[in-house]
Design a protein around this nucleic acid. Structure first.
Length: 552
RNA sequence: UGGGUUAUAGUGUAAUGGUAGCACUACAGAUUUUGAUUCUGUCCGUCUAGGUUCGAAUCCUAGUAACCCAACCA
């Protein structure tokens, strides 16, 4: 009866640790640096860390890795917290690496006292020169053998603000010939006279990542410290510090970060897109940021589901964005209220429907009765999509054409018998007759039609701006193409329809509501929308079998 | 070319010496008052070469490819 769900490699480790009694319960952490906005790659890490804790009855801390005051800001802290919450996760504790600055400082003093750390006066160039290369061993710094007393007083002076930025660093004494470059006397403290978003001007020396991250994990008793593959070379140092300082033995495990087709995922590149104006902002709906996806209309559930489906492993991957789109359609199909909107309108006149007459029709809000109904006004003049009419119908065309019959969704079957063209030769008006006995829900006409199209009553319709989004890049993996990734930006990633016609019920739309504009896709209200000027974003289109047919 | 990590359908991910499975994609069909949804089916895979074994994606040997590592970034 037991349902065998295979475990990823981290779950296996955890189950082993739990089974052996190594740990009673697990404690994970999500440790962003507050220097930018979270993106879908972070969502993978968030879902992993929080998901593991939930699955195994443990807890997860949110810890900001704020050891570089030059880059970090409270604005980012706030957005990160908002995004994690929105994704649906609750952290047990909100911590900051800066909470531990005193303790980390004393760890450094401990290392000095053990003769394992020294103050180095070398310039960055000198340090780099003595570092060697992956194929050549490094050489010891001339300052490597300073006495413990001298190091202690020098380090205290560094802390006291005696020196300028870059004048001195504290390094740990390991092995300048190590194969692992990170073990060649890594720098653990640098001087930075910068204002920190939390500690203000209290400190002018700050620990490096390697001397803050593992220490913070250990202080918090994190059992499983999960990070991405590029930190593998840091693990040896991570373990060295824990061992040498004799502190709680947190363990680091690494998984492959998420890459997705037709986008970029590095903070640096995303920042460039914003600052150089290729997108409007960090929360531009085309961005792979959590805030961008939220604004676009993605749901937390769909993102969590996506993260579940992509799996956790150690090999490089490039996930097809169509999987993300599948996840959001799957969720929105259940949640979105069905409404009608005409994006590229052409007038349809029902010549045998009395002028001035209107009637209220009942339309379903969703795929079954449980979604309820709403009233929609029908009248003689309607808007329909230009693309739903073909003067000379193609093969397998089910929609409107001269002489053809289609159903107007939730209304009547009509037959086209005439159309007008403007001076430019475009279809300007379509005339049809309706079949009164074919009324939706009370159809006694016994006519079967293959096509159903959506519509909006012209006299009742509201206008709205509709924004359609396409992939941001034309290359599957822009970062890996030749030249600058920005050369591959899709110039048509945003299409604005300034005046679409939408049904009046949409006046009550609120941020966070999800709609399916029948046959056109899933949409949501944009944050820039007002009652005077409604703005909708297309989250994702519907699958379109006809479009594929046309391509053939 | 020093060290590290990884190789399973188009894309991801399982199978822990015993029938290579699942999801997405693509394709075909059924249903449909959304050419949506739903349902059915099809195509397609163990990096290479040797070896061990009754039996290898899995173990061994030798290759090959991709990614990561020389920031006072994280």
């Amino acid at each position: 009866m037991s349902e065998e769900k295979s475990l990823n490699f981290i779950e296996e480790i955890i189950e082993t640790d739990l089974a052996s009694g190594q740990y009673q319960s697990i404690l994970t952490r999500f440790p962003p640096e507050p220097n930018g906005y979270l993106h879908i790659g972070h969502a993978k890490s968030i879902c992993l860390n929080f998901g593991l804790a939930i699955k195994y009855g443990g807890k997860t801390n949110l810890r900001f890795d704020d050891t570089n005051p030059a880059k970090e800001e409270t604005e980012y802290v706030d957005s990160i917290k908002e995004d994690v919450k929105w994704l649906g996760f609750n952290w047990s504790n909100e911590f900051y690496a800066s909470d531990y600055f005193d303790q980390i400082y004393s760890f450094a003093v401990t290392l000095i006292k053990k003769g394992l750390a020294y103050v180095d006066d070398s310039t960055p160039d000198e340090i780099a020169a003595l570092k060697g290369s992956p194929t050549e061993p490094g050489k010891n710094s001339p300052f490597r053998d300073r006495s413990i007393e001298e190091n202690l007083s020098l380090f205290a002076a560094m802390k006291a603000g005696t020196y300028q930025d870059g004048e001195k660093v504290l390094r740990v004494k390991i092995d300048m010939a190590a194969n692992n470059m990170h073990m060649r006397d890594p720098i653990i403290y640098r001087i930075k006279h910068a204002h920190h978003h939390r500690t203000g001007d209290q400190w002018c020396i700050y620990p490096m990542y390697d001397f803050a991250h593992g220490q913070s994990d250990s202080i918090e008793n994190i059992t499983h410290s999960i990070c991405t593959l590029e930190f593998i070379p840091h693990r040896e140092l991570y373990d060295w510090f824990i061992h040498t300082l004799e502190i709680f033995p947190s363990k680091q495990y690494e998984f492959a970060r998420l890459n997705m087709t037709y986008t970029v995922m590095s903070k640096r590149k995303l920042l460039q897109l914003v600052t150089e104006g290729h997108v409007q902002s960090w929360d531009d709906p085309r961005m792979p940021t959590i805030s961008g996806m939220r604004r676009r209309g993605y749901t937390p559930e769909s993102i969590r589901n996506f993260c579940e489906r992509i799996g956790i492993a150690k090999r490089e991957n490039l996930i097809d964005v169509s999987l993300l789109e599948f996840c959001v359609r799957e969720d929105l199909n259940l949640k979105a209220t069905r409404v009608m909107a005409v994006l590229e309108p052409v007038k349809l006149v029902i010549t045998n429907y009395p002028e001035g007459q209107t009637e209220e029709l009942m339309c379903e809000n969703g795929p079954d009765e449980s979604y309820g109904h709403r009233k929609v006004q029908f009248s003689r003049e309607l808007w329909i999509e230009q693309e739903d009419f073909m003067e000379e119908p193609a093969k397998k065309w089910f929609r409107l054409a001269p002489g053809a019959l289609v159903r107007l969704k939730s209304a009547y079957i009509i037959q086209c018998n005439h159309f007008l063209k403007d001076a430019a030769g475009n279809i300007s008006e379509i005339h049809a007759t309706y079949i009164p006995e074919s009324k939706s829900g009370a159809d006694t006409s016994e006519i079967k039609v293959k096509g159903t199209i959506h519509w909006v009553s012209a006299q009742h319709a509201l206008q709205a701006e509709i924004r359609l989004y396409d992939r941001l890049f034309n290359a599957e993996n822009p970062s890996q193409e030749e030249g600058d990734f920005k050369e591959y930006i899709n110039p048509d990633s945003l299409q604005i329809i300034p005046k679409a016609f939408i049904e009046p019920s949409l006046l009550n739309a609120a941020i966070g509501n999800h709609f399916q504009f029948i046959r056109k896709g899933y949409f949501c209200l944009d944050k820039e929308s007002t009652k005077e000027k409604l703005v909708f974003n297309r989250t994702v289109s519907l699958k379109d079998a006809w479009a594929k047919e046309v391509k053939k």
